[in-house]
């Protein structure tokens, strides 16, 4: 696996992901884009609009969990699809700037319904050459 990107890990009922990044900012940004890769073909999403997600949390897992919750709401409430993301860490949290556009059924195909990002077995850890995170998405 590349230093950046995501892959699916085995899980019986839901989707379990491993995401990697060269640094924490990259890891958080890739976590957001991988969520949208599960939802749609991101190559068909235009980077027309910019939105900002900002969360704070007690530890890295907490921040990742809260960030992914916010990211999912972009789609479930605002019907917004993400093409790309850029992350920035600050003292108590993380800020991710995403670019994308509103869902348009004539151009975008929604693969599946994502109910939620769960906190089950959520891990953020250092690996050689960067960071990795694992978590489960309820579909």
């Amino acid at each position: 696996m590349k230093p950046r990107g995501y892959r699916l890990l085995p899980h019986t009922a839901d989707i379990r992901l491993e995401v990697r990044g060269q640094d924490l900012a990259g890891l958080f940004a890739t976590s957001v884009t991988s969520l949208f890769s599960l939802l749609t073909d991101r190559r068909r999403v235009r980077a027309a609009e910019t939105r900002t997600l900002e969360v704070s949390g007690r530890d890295l897992e907490d921040r990742l969990f809260l960030l992914l919750r916010e990211a999912l709401l972009l789609f479930t409430v605002d019907r917004f699809l993400v093409r790309s993301a850029r992350g920035k860490m600050n003292r108590s949290g993380v800020r991710v700037e995403v670019r994308g556009e509103a869902f348009d059924a004539s151009r975008h195909h929604a693969f599946r319904e994502i109910k939620a990002v769960t906190a089950h077995g959520m891990v953020v850890e250092r690996i050689p050459g960067g960071f990795a995170a694992r978590y489960v998405i309820d579909v």
């Binding site: 009922a13 839901d14 089950h120």
Partner: peptide
């Protein structure tokens, strides 16, 4: 029963 999150399904 199978693997869920938190509780098993």
């Amino acid at each position: 029963i199978h693997w869920g999150y938190g509780f098993p399904i």
